[in-house]
Nucleic acid binder design. Structure first.
Lengths: 338, 338
DNA sequence: GCAACTTACTTAAGCGGTTAATTTCAGAAG
DNA sequence: CTTCTGAAATTAACCGCTTAAGTAAGTTGC
């Protein structure tokens, strides 16, 4: 085991006190240029790196942010969203020498607990809060504990945490408008986890748009985002008397599953049924027919959230921002209503 | 900002010294049962949690392990592998109150640099090394720095790091054997990144199996795992004079892309072309036809790697282990050769 | 020529724990 | 009634770094 160098080692070699070394390494006044250069040179030479522990003990930042993902392990695997989001977060964090602490937890309570621990142990400077659900206590918890947090989702009334969000309502509306324009009057929505805030926002927007257009029917079925539930919901919708002529899904995987179910039931897409995916990925492109989808730049979304987090930690405040609204990319899975 | 409690606060309330508190909280001898209970009760009551920084300053573990993923951000999004692997890793780590530090880096040098930094800053107790490539210096680097590391891949000669690996060679052989059994004599392989060690192992196994069976042709094309390159490779293979009657892919996404290309070229699957995916996921199931795939439990793979890491950190040593070999799940995309 | 600054350092306390060494004290042994 | 023992607790140094306060020079101004 190699003993790692400390500022004391540098001090001895440079023939100065550790205090002087500290000043020099931190670019603070109090040392002559000559001494500073000498100290920096020695530090470089012996490969000195600051001890995070020692620094944070004196109250400094720990240069780490937490990301807690409250979803069961198996579900996560097929969600392109998170991996892309994380990639985006990482691109900003690593450029700022900040680590990402990841925790995948099965439920809400575990998520709260994780925040508490990390903060109490001073492991993180702040947390990114994703997958906000309706009665989510995390914003209040963070405020109460004094943990800097960035909400990935709509800003909350009553809590002073910056949010980075996308206007899902408008996006959903644009899908309904599009489908209505090409003649659909019976449109269904297969939603994601009903407890999630953005699911509720989308469902509300969907129903409002449906009402505005005076649609014949606009059923909504909730799922857990998996292929199985997506397929099951589709089967239910397609075996009703007045089956919908168009169905929108809250992610891409379920839309792909829908293609499969339609095929199985002998319903041709897009001639008899139009399908729209709520997230875009290579998955949608690869299908036959390729799937019309709501596309947004998720990597960028993650990057913005991370940047907001850094600003918040740096300045003690940061402003909320909205990322560009998802745009509909029409492909082969949608056509005029039969 | 709430000031967090320290052992000094507990000491005052309990009317003892901080030393006694430390002994009590760590379950070490030197305090009477009565005092110990009192201290524990107070600690619980005021919500005390140890300061990671203070502890690690005295040389203790930091209860964190690093995972560095050397892949470009965009490629990661569609790789179900990593998210599942991470889920598995997390399931073990979080049960042991250990954090996962994640870093996604674009290239090999950045990966080395990340390890150096994390270790120098004492941010981690060890690292999980995935995506080993041929001339990978990381095993040597870890040994040299004295960083506990677990190789996710074949054990390396000359370095004393435990490895958790799957027998890809046998898995690939089983695919070739299967295809030969159902009559195929021209089998192609669309490989992943050629620099990765497991890609090379698989390619070697593929070629060895092809030779053993005396196949007419067994071309190999390398890709970067993306849909685009998978499609392109497929197109090249299918437009040659003696086009293969079966193609195996190094992941699932490319196999799905292949389905698309075959369709486009008017080649029917499985009648004229059999397709096998090298990883299994819901993707394969959802296709038409569903895709024959090599399946393995990736979540479990991650869990084992994490457990090995914990053992290594705990005991200073851990033994290498092999995870169950992937098994072929025949589905509708493979059939007897035309 | 001397007070008043600057500059370039050093000193030492403190962050929140751990732990070797020391002290205190009740009870057992002689 | 000593002496010894061991349990229970305290003390204080230490981990690596930061930083307020102190000091010893050199510089400036009048």
């Amino acid at each position: 085991m190699v003993k790692r160098p400390t500022i004391a080692d540098i001090a001895i070699q440079a023939g100065v006190s550790t205090g002087a070394v500290s000043y020099a390494l931190n670019g603070r006044p109090g040392v002559s240029p000559a001494t500073r250069d000498k100290i920096l040179a020695i530090a470089e030479e012996i490969g000195w790196r600051p001890s995070l522990a020692a620094r944070s003990l004196t109250g400094a930042r720990v240069n780490a942010v937490g990301l807690i993902i409250p979803r069961p392990a198996r579900v996560l695997g097929m969600e392109p969203f998170f991996m892309q989001f994380i990639s985006g977060v990482e691109s900003v964090l690593s450029a700022n020498r900040t680590a990402l602490l990841l925790q995948v937890v099965p439920d809400h309570d575990a998520a709260d607990e994780a925040v508490r621990y990390w903060w109490a142990e001073r492991r993180i400077d702040g947390v990114l809060v994703t997958d906000l659900w309706a009665q989510d206590q995390r914003p209040e918890l963070l405020t109460q504990l004094g943990v800097p947090g960035v909400l990935v989702g709509r800003p909350r009334d009553g809590v002073d945490l910056p949010a980075v969000w996308s206007d899902d309502a408008t996006a959903v509306e644009s899908v309904v408008d599009y489908l209505v324009t090409i003649g659909h009057r019976r449109i269904a929505r297969v939603a994601g986890l009903p407890s999630l805030e953005h699911t509720q926002i989308r469902t509300a927007a969907f129903q409002a748009a449906a009402a505005r257009h005076g649609l014949e029917s606009a059923p909504v079925i909730s799922t857990d985002y998996t292929w199985e539930e997506g397929a099951q919901a589709t089967r239910r919708l397609l075996t009703t008397a007045d089956r919908p002529t168009a169905i929108t899904y809250d992610n891409d995987l379920m839309a792909v599953a829908a293609l499969s179910v339609a095929h199985e039931l002998g319903i041709s897409v897009p001639a008899q049924l139009s399908i729209v995916a709520g997230d875009d990925s290579q998955l949608c492109l690869v299908q036959h027919p390729s799937i019309t989808a709501l596309a947004r730049d998720i990597v960028d979304y993650g990057a913005r959230a991370a940047q907001t987090m850094l600003d918040l930690v740096e300045d003690g405040q940061a402003s909320s921002q909205q990322v560009p609204t998802a745009t509909l990319i029409p492909r082969a899975s949608t056509a005029t209503a039969p």
